[in-house]
Design a binder for these strands. Structure first.
Lengths: 213, 213
DNA sequence: TCAAAAGTGTTTGGGTTACACCCATGG
DNA sequence: CCATGGGTGTAACCCAAACACTTTTGA
């Protein structure tokens, strides 16, 4: 039977850009390179695949992950020199930028890196570059469809804030009018009557929260 | 390490309906029930996950499958009583209705079943019902986007034929004008000058083939 | 008073839908 | 000639994009 692992693609929006959580690998193979946090499946501890991913998150990042979606499985005989056959099940998660992650065992350091221009910092370990691309694509499709993962933006929020987050994920500007109309048409947000956010030298913004909370 | 298998969701259009290839299980667990064809990953024979799926297809169905797409991976401690932990990587494929499948080892019989009303024939083995639903959903999204798998329809074909196949996959009628315009706009089909299909008591239809063949 | 950002109304254009109509063939 | 299905033109409609404009605040 093959050597089975779980890899995590953890994304967030910070500094107006989509970022991915990477770790500097301490051990071979690919020691010194940046790679996705991951870990071996433990059939004595994990009840399900997603449970395994959450355990790996606890061990490596110090906490569980919200909005965990399975991305794909990759595997082959030549994938990992530590085993004759290696299989990885990859999960993605979109988290709040304020997520506190604490490096865990066998992780030298955790770093947020903007997904644009990742190639500038040298090659990533294994095929992790392609996995990140796939995760970004799936996440963008989700946000494009206004399918907001619960708990991603802290409530209450304003529509311009939601628009800015969405634009950061998508990597392109969004039209204000179109965005407002599309979001309001979905019916998933409701205005908080009388509550505003007065942030600067401009008109305060209406606060919203997701309906059904 | 877990027990790793590959399962195949093979779909085709026949009798104007989307059908799935199922096998009557000869052995426990779930003996006698209908289930997806599948097989165990062989790390000594298979170089990749997709290679494993193709080997399973050769052994169980007597041929390789075109348009093979990975659907998901499912796994857990309670998944299969034959092992303490079982993991399945699921693939889907859309094939021509004329595909000849010959039952292989450990498969009593292969049957095409319409995906509508599958529940009427008793429960399926494992979670194969849910896997079929996911495969149908993914296939419908692909056809909805006019992303036709190469070799799915035999060329040459007429646009009404392509429309009928698409409608069968999607499970709903399609507007003739809209369908023609959308297909022609993609530029992936080209008319065969002067070639027509005269099938009945009506005007013959223009024959097409996919561009870039 | 002004700059800046929130929020609204209007127009434009692309693409889908619906409908009417013509075309070509077999019976 | 007529029924049948292939193929085309036109108008209505929906939605997103672009633009102009008003509103409200802090400086």
């Amino acid at each position: 039977m093959p050597f089975v692992r779980t890899e995590l693609v953890v994304l967030c929006v910070a500094q107006g850009e989509l970022q991915v959580l990477l770790s500097r690998r301490a051990e071979e193979p690919h020691a010194g390179k940046l790679g996705l946090p991951g870990g071996v499946l433990r059939i004595d501890e994990d009840a399900t695949l997603e449970g395994a991913a959450q355990r790996v998150a606890r061990e490596r990042l110090g906490r569980e992950l919200p909005n965990l979606h399975q991305l794909c499985a990759v595997g082959g005989a030549e994938r990992d020199p530590r085993a004759p056959w290696a299989l990885s099940v990859v999960y993605r998660s979109l988290v709040q930028p304020e997520l506190a992650v604490t490096p865990g065992k066998r992780v030298q350091a955790l770093e947020w890196r903007a997904v644009g221009g990742l190639a500038d910092h040298g090659p990533l370990a294994f095929d992790h570059g392609e996995l990140i691309d796939k995760a970004v694509e799936a996440t963008r499709a989700q946000i494009e469809a206004l399918d907001y993962p619960p708990g991603w933006v802290q409530e209450p929020f304003t529509l311009p804030e939601l628009q800015a987050f969405s634009a950061a994920v998508l990597g392109r500007e969004l039209d204000k009018v179109t965005f407002r109309r599309r979001v309001e048409a979905t019916g998933q947000v409701e205005a908080l009557q009388g509550e505003m956010r007065s942030g600067g030298a401009h008109r305060p913004a209406q606060l919203y929260r997701f309906a059904g909370c």
